[in-house]
Nucleic acid binder design. Structure first.
Length: 625
DNA sequence: GAACAGGTTGTTGTG
DNA sequence: CCACAACAACCTGTT
């Protein structure tokens, strides 16, 4: 019956350049090829995604669609508004499809979804082709070459990569595309259940994502923020392959920058322009191929005298990305959480995920639901999340993240360390939840892996190396330009106090027109900036001691004690005072949450007793009951 | 098995 | 300006 009739299913490979999957589709020499995108309720309702990232997705889709139309005026990106798991079999039949081609996915939801679709295709007699294209090497191949184990260090990744083989050279974009075939939709729309909708709080209008299969005009149009009920985006960063390629060429054109790049020497305080490439969102949406990026840099490095090398170099950054992908490929869905993850250390952080709060039921932390073990920790978390911690460096970064969807990698280090092991002792999964919502470049594997790294629960263990919310920023930005821009209430404060406004004398504050008062939550008075929410020096000591205890106990996410809650006894016996408190638990017998001073007294002369004697209660105030 | 080196990206103080 | 040690000390991999 003639030549192949191919659906090319675009997902997170929104590009025409260097797409092995698209090449595979065209190599079939198809009669017809439908470039489609399916609207997935998982991302609309179940996964957190901020407005900025949705805008970026639509940028990518619109740019891709225009590029397709340039190759073939009859074609474009056709958006089908139904879940792939239900709509694909209907399309196979109605469009008489012979082949389905897509780029192999990397995250665990995507892989599970694809397994379902592949099975449906098999049943319908549709051949599936899905080469990898999102990473330097196929993550599954890396795992095999790493002995079936997750790549937990850059040396392991490099060794495994060497065994897998040379990173493929980028492929050119196609010069022409076949016509799309007819697209009859002689079947009903299966609307998803919009509840639970984790993005509901972000919507200020009516959600109309799934009103009809081919969109409101029946033309398979790309969606808009309005149709999702979202307000306007706030980020200046915009997506699309055209922009991505231009940005890459701009970076390569500065040969010294690209060839001698050393990540630890780039400033987290730089903005407009930032000190790193800002290409990560393009990698996330696939509007830039990672191998195209790699080889453009590597070819330059090969001819450049005095180039930097991995892991600090530009290509080294891409190796870390592959390391996280391959770790996730080996561990599977528990990779993004503590529970059931054999490679993540168990630490009894505050605000644990609901699934982790002492039962063995529940397998993932993706819902974002968490147990408020102490109101104090939740207040710290809320203040961190909204950029009102009272530490200007932290607040500037968190506000930049919220408004723009991107902050420098070392800025992410600073805020992540502060939330977890370097201040608040709040669970890294809470921080990962916030990054998941706000980052344009959010990648489940990289996000989880980096949070594990920074919280010293996997990949990295030197927990005594702690970022100061004051000194680290000062090292890069003495004048506090980043703070002045993102925390405008402090913009006129003397450089001497810009990182520590609580130390400023009244005259300096008056001169700058700012008062240091309040906790920053709720309605904030104009011309005020909040008081610091904790004493960093004290908290640093408390956290290091608590993590030392957790290390010595040595539990991991898959240990029985972690699943059944008996870990608690081990930590009590070790005299751990910072651990989670639960209503009705032994540590909470009066029905109220114990404050730290009380816990300290209870703990008695534990092995860390002497070091922690002193003014904890002065710094960590009890909230009103 | 002990010793040691290395780990992209800490801070503070000294010389 | 830099280098280096102390801080209190983790892990993994190699010899």
């Amino acid at each position: 019956m003639g030549n192949p009739r191919v659906i090319y299913w675009f997902r997170t490979d929104l590009r025409l350049h260097d797409s092995p999957a698209l090449k595979a589709a065209l190599d079939l020499n198809p009669d017809v090829l439908w470039p489609i995108f399916t609207w997935d309720p998982h991302y609309v309702y179940r996964a957190k995604g901020g407005v900025n990232r949705w805008q970026y997705l639509f940028d990518c889709q619109n740019d891709l669609s225009e590029s397709i139309t340039k190759l073939n005026p009859k074609s474009k990106l056709f958006v089908v508004r139904e879940a792939p798991q239900t709509v694909m079999p209907k399309l196979f039949k109605a469009w008489k499809v012979t082949h389905l081609v897509f780029e192999k996915d990397t995250d665990s939801y995507g892989r599970e979804r694809d397994k379902v679709v592949v099975d449906l295709a098999k049943k319908a007699g549709v051949k599936v082709i899905s080469p990898y294209g999102r990473t330097l090497w196929d993550s599954d191949d890396l795992v095999v070459q790493n002995g079936g184990k997750p790549t937990m260090s850059i040396t392991q990744l490099q060794a495994a990569g060497k065994k897998v083989g040379k990173i493929p050279r980028p492929l050119p974009a196609p010069k022409h595309l076949p016509d799309p075939g007819d697209m009859p939709l002689d079947f009903g729309l299966e609307s998803p259940d919009p509840k639970p909708d984790v993005n509901a709080p972000l919507r200020d209008g009516k959600d109309q994502a799934y009103t009809s299969l081919a969109g409101p005009k029946g033309d398979f149009a790309i969606e808009t923020l309005e149709e999702l009920g979202f307000p306007a985006a706030t980020t200046p960063h915009r997506g699309g392959e055209t922009r991505a390629l231009k940005a890459l060429e701009h970076i390569i054109a500065d040969e010294e920058y690209a060839a001698t790049f050393q990540k630890p020497k780039t400033s987290p305080a730089a903005f407009r322009p930032q000190s790193t490439t800002l290409l990560s969102p393009h990698l996330h949406f696939g509007s830039l191929s990672v191998r195209l990026f790699y080889w453009r840099v590597q070819d330059l490095v090969d001819k450049y005298k005095g180039a930097s090398s991995p892991p600090e170099s530009l290509t080294g950054q891409l190796l870390f990305r592959d390391m996280y992908f391959a770790a996730q490929a080996a561990i599977g869905s528990p990779f993004v959480q503590t529970l059931n993850n054999p490679y993540v250390r168990f630490v009894p952080w505050h605000l644990p995920s609901k699934a982790e709060a002492g039962t063995e039921t529940g397998t993932n932390a993706a819902s974002g639901a968490y147990h408020v073990d102490t109101p104090q920790a939740d207040q710290w978390f809320q203040r961190w999340k909204h950029g009102v911690t009272g530490f200007p460096w932290i607040d500037a970064l968190m506000r930049q993240l919220r408004a723009e969807g991107w902050i420098h990698h070392l800025g992410r280090h600073a805020v992540a360390c502060f939330l977890t092991r370097g201040g608040c002792y709040v669970h890294w999964e809470r921080g990962a939840d916030v990054f998941e919502e706000l980052l344009l470049d959010h990648e489940p594997a990289c996000n989880a892996g980096n949070w594990q790294w920074l919280s010293c629960t996997a990949f990295f263990a030197q927990y005594y190396r702690c970022y100061s919310p004051v000194a680290f920023g000062q090292k890069w930005d003495k004048e506090g330009a980043l703070i002045r821009h993102y925390v405008p209430e402090l913009k006129d404060l003397d450089q001497k106090y810009i990182y520590e406004p609580w130390k400023a004398p009244r005259a300096a504050l008056d001169k700058a027109g700012v008062k240091v008062e309040g906790d920053g939550l709720g309605e904030r008075r104009k011309g005020t900036y909040p008081e610091p929410m904790l004493d960093f020096g004290e908290r640093r000591g408390v956290c290091i001691a608590a993590i030392k205890t957790a290390y010595s106990i040595g539990l991991h996410g898959n240990d029985q004690q972690v699943k059944d809650g008996t870990w608690r006894k081990l930590f009590e016996d070790a005299g751990e005072a910072e651990m989670e408190q639960f209503e009705g638990s032994d540590h909470d017998d009066d029905g109220e949450f114990a404050d730290d001073a009380e816990q300290e007294a209870r703990k008695g002369a534990g092995k860390r007793g002497a070091a922690k004697q002193g003014p904890m209660d002065k710094h960590v105030k009890r909230l009103k009951a």
